[in-house]
Amino acid sequence: MHELSICYGLMDQVERIAAEQRAVKVVEIVLRIGPLSGVEPQLLAHAFPVAAAGGIAEDAELVIEDMPLRVYCEACDAESEAAPNRLLCGHCGGFYTRVVSGDEMLLARLELEREEEAAIGGSNNTTEDTENTEKTA
């Protein structure tokens, strides 16, 4: 059961990104998990509320996108679907294949609420603007 420790690690990542983005709340967390990642999406979902309690993502929705398992065979120069314990080429049956999708354990996307609403009406307007997101109230 390493899903809980993975969830705690996820929370560290989310807190860091939320701080960088000046978010006040994390609304949604999207993960991509493949069947060869070694983590069980269901266990991750159970562990999530425990790890998220009291943090910025406490009320966030956890969305887990299951990734398909596909292998690439160099001999055939082709991809095929595979099963976790049978990663052979679907065309020639050879085992010199490479997993191209299915071993991911990724934090794909976050949906955030930023602090700009809270900042409006504040006395100092020193929010650091980046070149592409300049905004004038």
């Binding site: 993975i6 983005q21 354990m105 990724l106 934090l107 794909a108 976050l110 949906e111 609420e113």
Partner: peptide, 14 residues
Amino acid sequence: RDAVEVLEGLLSAN
């Protein structure tokens, strides 16, 4: 709300 693409491994600290 703002959506932020991350695409970071869950075990990046490890």
